[in-house]
Design a protein around this nucleic acid. Structure first.
Length: 445
DNA sequence: TCTGGGGTCCTAGGACCC
DNA sequence: TCTGGGGTCCTAGGACCC
């Protein structure tokens, strides 16, 4: 059976979320920053035109932002998560299957009605109307081609936000599509492919069959079409099995199925850079305790438990003097899987003491929880103690209070005092979707 | 002065086993 | 002196994604 994939991708998602609540910003340059107001993570079309690039540090972009009156926001992930859910709910009404790929992208299957382009336009209109978010849709016989189609839909407005690569003329587009923009080809592979790699000519017989243009007797792969025509053995060797799947997908052979069901996660990471430099064990301890509280909450919300805990701390990676650079991690196999915050904190504190070295200016701390199992399957150990039931009840109560009254209304004593290392978020938009006092007011006309 | 926070998968190499 | 040919498991590091 012939499958048709779609990729529905929001345009400048975080910016679009902010605009959905402040329509006056439509048509104006807007950016959204990462945690700690560090880097640019989302740009409106107008900001891109001003030369602000993805991932640009805020302090470098500041002259442009101030010079052109660009509106900027700190990340408001609670808001973006809520908008994302509404967007996926809306899309789900139109398609037989949907994969929640990232906060702003969904892969879908289309019905084999042959009307997928009409369906795509209908999805675009409805998502825009119901959530305020503009999306582009790419269509293709494989995920990789759908992804390329969506990129083309964004890049070329004349297509009306929908591009379909399931036809026979797909090569016409692949011919001009930069290989570095293909999903799965990152900067390293792109540089390798575009270089005049000597290794590439080591198997001339393979190249005879490929029909690739030769540049001074050597190979260069610059476009998606050239990658598509590469010999399997060569791809397998240099780009691993993942690269080979990718190339087959370019040829229209589906290797990456739609994953409509969420796979159980393997690990869970909570970390943050500090809002100001941190030097003492005490401050690090508070930050780590806070990460344990977040980690425990994430586990409980998904009814999971972890039995491996890693604590890591590091100085800034931008420090020049090697003597000022330090990073370390330590981990511990817990006696049984748990999601109990105080237990995690106790373990984390002793790990922290093992890695802490005085005399460094710390920039970041975090925890990593692994060996994750569903809460229902976890082994009950004598070590878990007879008061396990009580612990579960305490944690449910904490989670419930925090859900109703805002995150960290109740938090561990070890993470209680405010010491200024918390994230900087100087321009946070109102909590439109979670705080009744910040809900948008609408005037009836 | 100021540079994010999550994840996944694959491979190579070492330790260990028979 | 000779120095096999498998297998498994684990970890570190690299590459990628948003």
């Amino acid at each position: 059976m012939k499958e048709t994939f779609g990729l529905i991708d929001a345009d400048a998602f975080y910016v679009s979320c902010e605009r959905a609540f402040q329509p006056a910003l439509d048509g104006k340059p807007v950016v959204v920053l990462s945690n700690n107001d560090g880097n640019i993570v989302a740009r409106s079309r107008e900001s891109k035109a001003l030369g602000i690039t993805m991932g640009m540090p805020f302090f470098k972009a500041k002259p442009i932002i101030e010079g052109h009156g660009v509106t900027w926001f700190s990340s408001n992930y609670t808001l973006y998560g809520d908008v994302s859910r509404r967007m996926f709910d809306t899309i789900g009404g139109f398609v037989p299957a949907l994969e929640h790929y990232s906060i702003d992208e969904a892969f879908v299957h289309f019905d084999d009605s042959g009307r997928q382009e009409d369906d795509a336009h209908e999805i675009r209109r409805t998502v825009r109307k119901w959530t305020g978010i503009p999306v582009s849709v790419g269509i293709g016989p494989t995920k990789v081609l759908a992804k390329i189609a969506a990129a083309l839909a964004k890049k070329r407005p004349e297509h009306g936000g929908v591009v379909d690569l399931s036809g026979a003329d797909a090569d016409r587009y692949l011919k001009d599509f930069d290989v570095g923009e293909v999903w799965g080809i990152g900067p390293r592979y792109a540089r390798f492919l575009k270089s005049e790699g000597e290794e590439q000519s080591e198997q001339p017989d393979l190249w005879e069959a490929s029909g690739l243009p030769r540049v001074l007797g050597k190979q260069r792969i610059e476009t998606a079409l050239e990658l598509k025509n590469c010999p399997d053995a060569w791809v397998r060797k240099h780009l691993t099995i993942k690269g080979l799947r990718l190339v087959w997908e370019l040829r229209g052979i589906s290797c990456l199925p739609l994953e409509a069901f969420e796979r159980p996660r393997k690990g869970l990471c909570c970390s943050r850079s500090f809002g100001r430099p941190v030097t003492t064990l005490e401050d690090l301890g508070q930050a780590v305790a806070m990460h344990c509280a977040r980690g425990g909450e994430k586990l409980r919300r998904q009814r999971l438990a972890a039995s491996h805990l890693t604590v890591f701390i590091s100085t800034s990676r931008f420090r020049q003097n090697p003597e000022e650079v330090y990073s370390a991690a330590a981990s511990w196999q817990l006696p049984f899987p748990t999601s109990y915050t105080p237990g995690l904190i106790a373990a984390a504190q002793s790990l922290l003491e093992r890695v802490y070295k005085p005399g460094f200016v710390y920039h970041k701390a975090g925890i990593f929880l692994s060996d994750i199992v569903p809460d229902t399957e976890r082994q009950q150990s004598i070590l878990a103690g007879i008061d396990n039931e009580r612990r579960v009840r305490v944690m449910s109560a904490v989670d419930e209070i925090n859900r109703r009254h805002g995150r960290y209304t109740v938090r561990p004593l070890a993470a209680s005092s405010e010491r200024g290392w918390e994230m900087r978020r100087q321009h946070l938009s109102p909590r439109y979707t979670t705080r009744i006092d910040e809900v948008l007011r609408v005037k009836a006309c």
